[in-house]
Design a protein around this nucleic acid. Sequence first.
DNA 1: CTGTTAGCGCATTCAT
DNA 2: ATGAATGCGCTAACAG
Lengths: 337, 337
Amino acid sequence: MRKAQDRITIGDVAAEAGVSIATVSRVVNGRYGVAPDTSSRVQAVIDDLGYESSLVARSLRSHRTSVIGIIVPDLEPFSTELLKGAARAIHSTGYELIVCAGDGHVGAQVGWERRYLSRLNGTLADGTLLVTPTVVDVAHNAPVVVVDPHAGASPLPTVASQNLEGAMTATDYLIGLGHRRIGFIAGRPDLESARLREQGYLKALERSGIGFDPGLVRVGEYTREATEGPAHELLEMSDPPTAIFAANDVSAIATMDVAQSLGLSVPDDLSVIGFDNILESALSSPSLTTIDQSIQEMGYEATRLLVELIDEPDQEPAHLTLPTELVVRQSCRAVTA
Amino acid sequence: MRKAQDRITIGDVAAEAGVSIATVSRVVNGRYGVAPDTSSRVQAVIDDLGYESSLVARSLRSHRTSVIGIIVPDLEPFSTELLKGAARAIHSTGYELIVCAGDGHVGAQVGWERRYLSRLNGTLADGTLLVTPTVVDVAHNAPVVVVDPHAGASPLPTVASQNLEGAMTATDYLIGLGHRRIGFIAGRPDLESARLREQGYLKALERSGIGFDPGLVRVGEYTREATEGPAHELLEMSDPPTAIFAANDVSAIATMDVAQSLGLSVPDDLSVIGFDNILESALSSPSLTTIDQSIQEMGYEATRLLVELIDEPDQEPAHLTLPTELVVRQSCRAVTA
DNA sequence: CTGTTAGCGCATTCAT
DNA sequence: ATGAATGCGCTAACAG
């Protein structure tokens, strides 16, 4: 006797319909070679019992699941925006989407996405999208596309933004407003995007003749928590910066909050510019001037790439770079000389 | 010889380390009864080969996965916002999050989430969060919590907002601005939230003495696509409404777009109010006046409830109702008599 | 047309 | 302390 809590399995259906398990499997999957009347009888039992095949058991056996996995470090503004684009791309491809979220503590668990990847790819998912992973080498030959990759040349297909150009644009914008002491809150050091944004910051400073002051650089790791301390440090210097370029919007918003908690007005006492253009950046007060990297498009293109890769595995890894653009809002202001 | 494409399995590790599969399993799961030196030898091989156990195979066998599933019809503004709250709730509970997204075409596949639910619950996930499902009865006794449930009394725990009150507030707000012909774009008819919001609209109209004109009500199903036609109809009437209350923000934004494509100015020629307060509603132009239902909190509370339910299965199903609040922005205006 | 058999990768008895 | 054997739910040969 089956316990009430147990899930209904293919065996239950088979027993109830008086056929073999294989036959049930055939009608479930619409295979040929089943008599119409047995088929409908089995179908009736399926409907009656409310049977659905277990994704887990099925994929363990068939190694073809029609699902695409997306592995994100956390469900925060950036990745959720990315998901919207991925969902758009997946519609009517025949694939389904399964998102695995880490616990948000990137630092604690380097390589966690490799674990997930191994656990999904080859069994649950036909291909996987890796978002801001902590490692380059995933040691797998299953289809994988990386969004915002780890630092260093990637053997995998990647989708990224014009991080260098965007960062220079941001810094130039502040310089153009007359700022000379410009702080920088860097991103996750392991990511290529963070490296390039810092490099863009440096390059713009050098080019303008202002030069680089190492004392004005801190690391915010792209998160609110990691940004708060460094932002305090920067703003409590004896000769604090008049503007701060934060490597992403989350850090920028955290910086504005810290500034305001210190009694500083943004943008009157401090200009802040971010990077990403997450939705939240338009809602902060003041609204955040930032560099837009069409996040949804990144998700869309990456998913498209992945589906292509699954259907046609032997391709040269593509490396897409999407454009960035300055979005001027209320958080920056010219220095009053 | 193993093919290069194949995933590394526990068998590979066992062979390489010269031990049995069982021993590797013990090492992986930290079971007692393994000699220190064999353990470390096996561990070395695991690290070397980059082995990770397959989530699929593991959960098929053990029926305890430490993952919570979330099933959403699509990855759009509402559900992605909900996910942020769910992620917050899951941090440091020891559970992991797996999100399954439908293909967005709710109408086409009634009951799709039941399919997903069966496929996840009992095998992949220890418990499941169902977001705006198309059916009441899920015919399962595994832990399930429903967000924004199907119409009718639910035997399952639910999390919802004060839909009736919120809808009355919205309608009252328009009435207070002097509007008398107020159109309504209804939501997905199968959802309790849609039913209650329509009821709130009616109730407010009745109470104010304006009364209900059936000609001013259309169905937008909570989606942009389904809203566009009905919005056109409403605005091209010979005696069009001066204000429209849309049952969610996506519909409201679509309505504004239709109005503007017709040469109407919002709010000068038409006032529009929404429901949800998704992030996008603050970014539309004009910014959307709406009813806030703290979406993230719904995700947070629902996840909390689900974790409780998993740990303590025999509970009375809780029914949480979260408050709503009017958020005044730029899309409504008093009628100039 | 249908049933029997053999695994998919893993955890868990029961032996040894 | 370790290995061999069994089965989770299912699909894919192979028989009949």
